[in-house]
């Protein structure tokens, strides 16, 4: 339930579009949900961890790009 000053139609614009496919991968010892962005790199969608300190690590913030080789 939303409590916002933005009209609901604006908030939900694009709701019908399919979200980008995601995958789960352990990067640097942390399980995360990633959106693949081409070869060996992906955008962090969310972190799946029970260690709260993982959520403070700057390289894992949602939206950041992680790379692996």
């Amino acid at each position: 339930m939303l409590y916002t000053v933005v009209p609901i139609d604006d908030v939900l614009e694009g709701m019908e579009e399919e979200p980008a496919p995601t995958m789960e991968l352990i990067v640097g010892g942390v399980l995360m949900e990633l959106e693949p962005q081409g070869d060996f790199q992906a955008k962090v969608v969310r972190i799946i961890s029970s260690d709260p300190q993982d959520y403070l690590a700057s390289q894992h913030q949602p939206g950041s790009i992680v790379r692996w080789t």
């Binding site: 990067v27 640097g28 010892g29 942390v30 300190q53 993982d54 403070l56 690590a57 700057s58 390289q59 894992h60 992680v66 790379r67 692996w68 080789t69």
Partner: peptide, 12 residues
């Protein structure tokens, strides 16, 4: 064996 390491950075 990897480039990205999960750790709270020293600055933090």
């Amino acid at each position: 064996g990897q480039a990205e390491v999960a750790q709270v950075s020293p600055e933090v």
